[in-house]
């Protein structure tokens, strides 16, 4: 009798723990929304502000989504921010030189894919750690952007048609948000619904076993970097369109923020695995927090502290629960 009841208590506690670790961060996110709405009623949840938030997170969401793919196979890509800057510089320069809209955008994406291929070769075929390889290419890409622009901002002569990606709307929805949704949907589908995606997860779970099971581990890791390079380049194009100018370091903040978003996402819904829905909520959490704290007129420095604390709390919560 006693054994049985203590068993069921243990069972209950385990269930509660599992529930907490799978939904804790998400609940925290919802709580944050409730708090902001109560503190600034009618402002935070206004359609205008919601549109602002989605617009503000769109570019980060694109990078974080494709970063998720790299993190699924167990790697990192530190070069995404510098690569976004580089592709932004490339698209702006080509447009200024009179190259057509779509060829310029495709060229920028090609730069991203090539850079991703290079990262992938270094990591998957030359055996460099992703950290070292992408740290090096990050520096090189940053140098290329600075060299390309001579450290200055490209803005003069960008055609109006380029507003399409970062400033125009389709109905009430900003195009940048539509691009973000497309990237989210495609990446989710590839990772969750295709054999290719399941293989990526297999590599991330156990590369050795995947290799023994006959998977082409190297090609899979390489492809993840190509996807990440493409995502970074696309983000760079949207960013350059949004700012209607290309700054040689404009994309840099995307790198750490995207990794933070994927980590936040890993604390949600599923156990310790990067996945697209989690990453998206992670991105939203970061975006909502910075927007909400700005609206509440919180000191800029304190905002940074709070952001760090929230990330730690989320990771700790899921980690602590796992121990229980």
């Amino acid at each position: 009798m006693q054994t049985e009841s203590s068993l069921s208590t243990t069972q209950l506690r385990q269930d509660a723990n599992r529930w907490l670790r799978t939904y804790g961060t998400f609940i925290g996110f919802l709580a944050m929304i409730v708090i902001f709405s109560l503190l600034r009623p009618g402002v935070f949840l206004s359609p205008n502000n919601l549109r602002n938030i989605t617009e503000q997170v769109a570019i980060l969401a694109i990078v974080a989504t494709t970063m998720t793919v790299v993190m699924v196979v167990g790697d990192f890509d530190l070069s995404v921010g510098a690569l976004a800057s580089l592709s932004g510089v490339v698209v702006a320069d080509l447009l200024i030189q009179g190259v057509g809209l779509w060829p310029a955008v495709l060229a920028a994406l090609a730069v991203g894919a090539t850079a991703g291929l290079f990262n992938g070769l270094l990591v998957a075929y030359f055996g460099l750690s992703a950290f070292v390889a992408t740290l090096a290419t990050m520096t090189a890409f940053r140098g290329l952007s600075l060299f390309y622009t001579n450290g200055s901002t490209l803005f003069s002569g960008i055609p109006e048609s380029f507003r399409l990606f970062g400033q125009s709307f389709t109905g009430p929805i900003p195009n940048s948000v539509l691009i973000m949704l497309a990237v989210l949907a495609v990446t989710w589908f590839v990772l969750e619904q295709t054999t290719f995606g399941r293989r990526l997860y297999a590599v991330g779970g156990n590369a050795q076993a995947s290799y023994l099971a006959g998977l082409n581990v190297r090609a899979l890791r390489l492809s993840a970097f190509v996807i990440s390079g493409l995502g970074a380049a696309l983000a760079g194009v949207v960013l350059t369109s949004r700012l209607f100018s290309a700054h040689p370091t404009a994309g840099e903040p995307l790198m750490l923020n995207s990794i933070a978003a994927v980590f936040l996402g890993m604390t949600m819904f599923r156990e310790g695995e990067p996945h697209v829905p989690g990453t998206f909520v992670g991105v939203l959490l970061l975006g909502v927090m910075s927007n909400g704290l700005n609206i509440l007129q919180v000191n800029s420095y304190i905002q940074l502290v709070l952001t760090g604390v929230i990330i730690l709390l989320a990771v700790l919560l899921s980690g602590l629960a796992r121990r229980g």
Partner: peptide
Amino acid sequence: HIEVPGPVDFARSVTQDLLTA
């Protein structure tokens, strides 16, 4: 406080939020 790098986009988002506030 405006973060660098990326000050243009950062300032743009902050300004959006200030206009909301």
